[in-house]
Design a protein around this nucleic acid. Structure first.
Lengths: 343, 343
DNA sequence: TTCTCTACTGTGAACGCTCACAGAAGCGTG
DNA sequence: CACGCTTCTGTGAGCGTTCACAGTAGAGAA
């Protein structure tokens, strides 16, 4: 009944075992492990052989204890992000970040801060230095977590332009304005001239930018702006429905709508069809996001795709740069027009 | 030009600072931190106050170095994960696991092992003891990573019954067969008799079980099996579309389809409607999963709900049990029939 | 030769924590 | 009064690594 080996995990070889095996000192092994500068080729070789023979793997906890690094970053989702969690684009982002980090041998810790309690717990965890940086998927409202992390000097990169954090925080975002421009130009190219817009919430950068793009293209085309053709939405399906009804009431001659999200565009389709308008014959509809809602809709939505795979790799790149001391940076990536049935 | 404080992160308080502040020894502080047994109420109080005052947070690396635990577990997705990564249920599972672990103050590390290189890297990482356990989302054919981890004695819980690992590995799964039985019985109760099926991949237990349930109920109802009514799918929307087309071609008199996933069922709806069949009048459609795709579809899908939230919490429960020495266990959870418009 | 410079190597000393152990204090019991 | 038992506390050692520093050897220059 002695302490026999119950599960089979035996003591892992340490750097000391490797050193003995290779006939060198701990210091030399450590140097080989960390880039191999100032190590003779012979020692280099001997150490690598010893590592292979012993199956040595560095103990990251011991390393972290002394270096202060953890070789891990947090992927932080604040607020009860039901909406984004159901968006497959989220998965693309998450996978992209994980893979980009893995290439640098950095682990990704998933952190969900829905409730205030979770917020506190996670903030403490991060500011205690248990991760080297944070990839932040925040949202519209001013986020206290983000501000706290920034103040604590934690390397931070947000997905989408954060609000109210000044220029002190890095972010990577799709070019909302240019995407909107593309879509409205597309509607113009279809011969439409009475183009309405259901915007996003105008207290978010995305909402503002997408509307700005709309305005720019109309101005550029010499079409006078008609405020009756502009209504504010909230990114929800119901919001889109309500928005389309108001547009129809105020401007019955409308022949196209640019809707600032696919979810709202679904609502717009519903309202238009209820009002007896055919899409795209009577009214062309353009969405934004290329979410599953876009293909679930009927007709399928012509929309603007955001480059989520590139967004993820850029987020990681900017974060790593910041972790090695560079200044915060903003990266804006181009979008793509996806033509389907609705326009 | 001295080493001024560049970013603002100052030296974090250690257990020693807390001890001094509270007027006790490191040992006492440590005991308070780890459950507070054998600590006088007075000392308890003093330590907690000192922790609050100093803003102390335990350094997990130092703790891990000595305990051998890491207070983190890996969430491991093996195989080219495209398929499951696009399934919204994946998100529910991931979120559920993260939250359940957070309740125990355990971090979740996301690990994606697509390529052989990644497999090797991750296997090393895990067997080196950098995580205390692994939540495995495998699926397809015999998985070398799982076998290696099992052999190394790493606590392991799979999502869904793993293939070829004997009974040595824990898993949590929905009762696929029973769910399929429920759905097919429901279709029978609607008076349908020419019931087709689009299965999942038949090299997965889920795919096999759902088909088995279908067969059982038909046999039980005394309906002869018609192989023309059975096609294999791949859980993708496109797969469902193709499957429905083949079914229609082979058995035009089909009056119902049991589809082994909602995503495929969406494709099935598309194909049926394109072929001029009304759902549910001409052909009733039953899905599986109760994913968001089910309500996004039109008509909304009658489907089988898998208890993904419970699956995640059970996975964590079983994993924690195993981490504290208990034997592997299998947990099968009941499904639920959700009636909507499609059947 | 002697000195300097470069390339390399070994050796304590941390890092911040937990754990085992020894001891102290209080209290009832033989 | 010694003894044991329980409850509580402090102390040293050590987990596996990196880092600063000291030291060695060899090459080239003076």
């Amino acid at each position: 009944m002695s302490m026999s080996n119950t599960g089979g995990r035996r003591r892992a070889p340490t750097i000391h075992d490797v050193a003995r095996e290779a006939g060198v000192s701990r210091g030399t092994v450590s140097r080989v492990l960390n880039g191999g500068h100032y190590v003779s080729p012979a020692a280099q070789e001997a150490v690598n052989a010893a590592i292979r023979r012993t199956g040595y793997v560095v103990n990251r906890h011991a390393r972290s204890l002394i270096t202060g690094r953890s070789d891990s970053v947090g992927f932080l989702l604040t607020e009860p992000q039901e909406r984004f969690f159901e968006d497959p684009n989220f998965n693309v982002l998450l996978r992209g970040c994980t893979q980009a980090l893995a290439a640098h041998d950095i682990a990704l810790l998933l952190m969900l801060a829905g409730t205030p309690d979770e917020r506190r717990r996670i903030t403490r965890y991060i500011t205690a230095g248990h991760v080297d940086g944070v990839l932040l998927v925040s949202s519209h409202s001013g986020d206290p977590v983000a501000e706290e992390l920034r103040a604590a000097g934690v390397p931070l990169v947000a997905c989408g332009k954060p609000i109210g954090l000044g220029s002190k925080v890095s972010y990577v975002a799709a070019d909302d304005r240019d995407g909107a421009r593309d879509m409205v130009r597309h509607l113009l190219s279809l011969g439409r001239r009475r183009i309405g817009v259901v915007t996003g919430p105008l207290d978010t950068p995305g909402g503002v930018e997408r509307l700005a793009g709309y305005r720019e293209v109309l101005a550029e085309a010499g079409i006078a702006l008609d405020e009756k053709l502009i209504v504010e939405g909230d990114y929800s399906r119901a919001g889109g429905e309500a928005g389309a009804e108001r547009l129809l009431a105020r401007a019955p001659d409308m022949d196209a709508v640019f809707v600032a999200s696919d979810l709202m565009a679904q609502g717009v389709l519903t309202a238009l069809q209820r009002a007896g308008r055919r899409v795209p014959q009577d009214v062309a509809v353009g969405g934004f996001d290329d979410s599953p809602a876009a293909v679930a809709a009927s007709p399928e939505l012509t929309t603007i795709r955001q480059p989520w795979d590139r967004i993820s790799t850029e987020m990681v790149r900017v974060l790593l740069a910041q972790m090695s001391g560079e200044d915060p940076a903003a990266v804006i990536l181009p979008t793509e027009l996806v033509k389907r049935g609705s326009a």
